Amino acid sequence: MLTRRLLLAAGAASFAAPAAAQVVTALGPEAARLTILSDGSFEMPLAMLARDVPAGLIAAESGATEPYRTVLNVTCLRRGAELILFDCGAGAHFLPGSGRLQESLQAAGIAPDAVTHVLFTHLHPDHFWGSLDEFDSPLFPNARWLVASREIDFWTAPNVYGRLPADRHAFAAGAQRIAKGLGDKLERQEAGREWLPGIAAVETAGHTPGHVSFALDLAGQQVMVLGDALTHPRISFAHPDWRPVSDHDPDAAVATRRSLIDRLSSERSTVIGYHLPGAAGRVEKSGSAYRFAGI
């Protein structure tokens, strides 16, 4: 789990210049347009990409240097009168380099009051803490905010601190603060069904207890908004059995990755990853190996 304490302990106290606010890419026709917006990026130790794997092997397989910089991609779907966000970034209180969504929205010509729905894959800080503005009011005042019941129930349970290591307590405290700020605007939904017409929440638990991804059809092309079900452009696909430190339930996350990459390869779906450079691509299979190919 990404916390300031873990990052500082690993020697990642100094951060490179953050990614500029921007539109990362856009997909689909004007009638159903997906625009991927940057919420910036942050650095983390390479060791967080896999538990119990030698540092040299992680470096070789990831193709990355120490520290590793991960991008943050927020997906926006505009269809008819709807403007739907999938997650909403880190806000101002997470790690240096993150929290650039408001600037990217402005660059894309999207006003906060135009957003009609926010659908959460999960409630980690870099996905959920951007929900409130600097006055602790909902950033998107006209939106409906939808979250998996299992996910919100975990983070807001009275005993959540006893179910987390001490260095992750800040995640729960932040989730509870944001949930309180959203109040009754935050609507509980169940995985395994449509949350909005044509947008189904697929259960992809493991990274967090109630993590979901979103499946939709974009002009005849199947699209999956992954959230953090697959987080690294090489390791998640080539080594789905490796266990990132950020996974809440490592065994469940491994099972999810194995099942998901097989499904996405078979369906030839377009995938959008929150932490995948370039955001959009496809899963390709060669023999028993998988890879992420950008588009």
Rank of each mutant, 00 (worst) to 15 (best):
R78Y: 00
S149Q: 13
V24I: 11
A191I: 00
H169L: 07
A81M: 03
V223Y: 02
M1W: 11
A253E: 06
A252R: 10
A81C: 03
F171M: 14
I84N: 03
D228Q: 01
H275T: 13
P158Y: 07
Q189W: 05
L72I: 13
T65D: 15
G89F: 06
H127Q: 14
V225E: 10
P158R: 10
L164M: 10
L2P: 12
Q22R: 15
D136H: 15
Q189G: 03
H122V: 00
L182M: 07
L146D: 01
E267F: 03
L77E: 08
P240Y: 02
T256P: 01
G281Q: 05
A170R: 09
P29E: 13
N142W: 04
R69T: 10
G40Y: 00
T25E: 13
I152K: 03
N73K: 02
R78Q: 14
Y68F: 14
G273N: 06
T35C: 07
S265D: 13
D228A: 03
S213N: 04
E194N: 10
R193F: 01
F42H: 12
D247W: 15
L34V: 10
S269R: 03
G174I: 05
T70H: 11
T3E: 09
A175I: 04
A200V: 01
L216N: 04
T70W: 07
T70M: 14
R268C: 11
I178C: 11
L132G: 06
A280Y: 08
K180G: 12
D167E: 14
A175P: 05
P233W: 07
P67W: 09
G11S: 07
R234C: 11
G89V: 03
S62A: 12
V147W: 01
L27S: 06
H232E: 08
K185C: 09
E267I: 01
D217N: 12
G89Q: 04
G220H: 08
A9T: 06
